[in-house]
Nucleic acid binder design. Structure first.
Lengths: 142, 142
DNA sequence: AACTTAATTGATACTCTATCTCAATTAGAA
DNA sequence: TTCTAATTGAGATAGAGTATCAATTAAGTT
């Protein structure tokens, strides 16, 4: 198959990891889902794609992607199952309605100043961020 | 016992929930731990405080606190157990080192402008936020 | 202080997510 | 092709979180 590698697959290879069938399948599922999927959903879709891929590999891959900041687990509904969020350029922003649990994503953020300030003050090197707002969405606000 | 109620306990009551022994115990454990505790740690410490408090109540309470934004589950190490973060005034900010998993908390953030802008543009009413930065801490930066 | 009742609780059995183990397979370099 | 360490799949296992339901309790009312 004339696979066109995504940028994330390149990052995976650049970090010294093999581009295995299982990993590329999980990545494909994540990218096609547009982010915001639970591990159960990833498991199900990966199985639909190729039933021979094992559960353990899917979880191992999600952990690997998390450590590489390709994906970030967050909580939406309760404290139970994490929802995996794809991090397009290493950052992600959304609003969670505390009434109906709807997720509203937005693109722009003005954290580059804060990033520079923190790096200077704390001596850290920051590569990404996640911003979650909580509140009532337009519908639930009445 | 001459219990001096914390502000969070008042918020709990104001939201129409009973101030039960189990809930106050979980709240006390969370406040004494300074945030950043796993459910297993909360379970253990609540048990140490009063062994008669059941597991189910602790989980129910953590879910209740999450829905009230008294606490927010986030992921630190892997995709496994959530770490509960106490939200002092409805917002919380930290840096997670992607190498050693150290958590660096910082206080000030400049998101009030972004909050106002989002409320105006999207018609939402925002009550809190969580900001997570990822990168290398000063030690791991070499 | 006793009464009332809906909210909450604890015990425990259960479900289901995620992990561990290890022999078999595979990606990628030589 | 050959080689080897990384990775995999299967399935048993661990352990986090839930469901159920009778018993208890917080807190308003009298």
């Amino acid at each position: 198959m004339s696979e066109q590698l995504s940028l994330r697959a390149e990052r995976l290879r650049a970090a010294g990891h093999k581009l295995t069938h299982a990993r590329l399948s999980v990545l494909r599922v994540l990218e096609e889902s547009g982010g915001h999927v639970t591990s159960a959903e990833v498991l199900e879709r990966v199985s639909a794609l190729d039933a021979s891929i094992g559960r353990a590999s899917v979880f191992r891959t999600l952990d690997l992607f998390t450590s590489l900041l390709i994906v970030r687990p967050t909580y939406i509904d309760s404290s139970v199952t994490p929802t995996y969020v794809l991090m397009p350029e290493g950052h992600h922003h959304h609003i969670i309605c505390t009434n109906c649990n709807r997720v509203i994503e937005f693109e722009d953020c003005c954290l580059s100043e804060m990033t520079a300030e923190l790096e200077a003050r704390l001596g850290v090197k920051l590569t990404g961020h996640l911003v979650e707002f909580y509140g009532l969405c337009d519908r639930c606000r009445q």
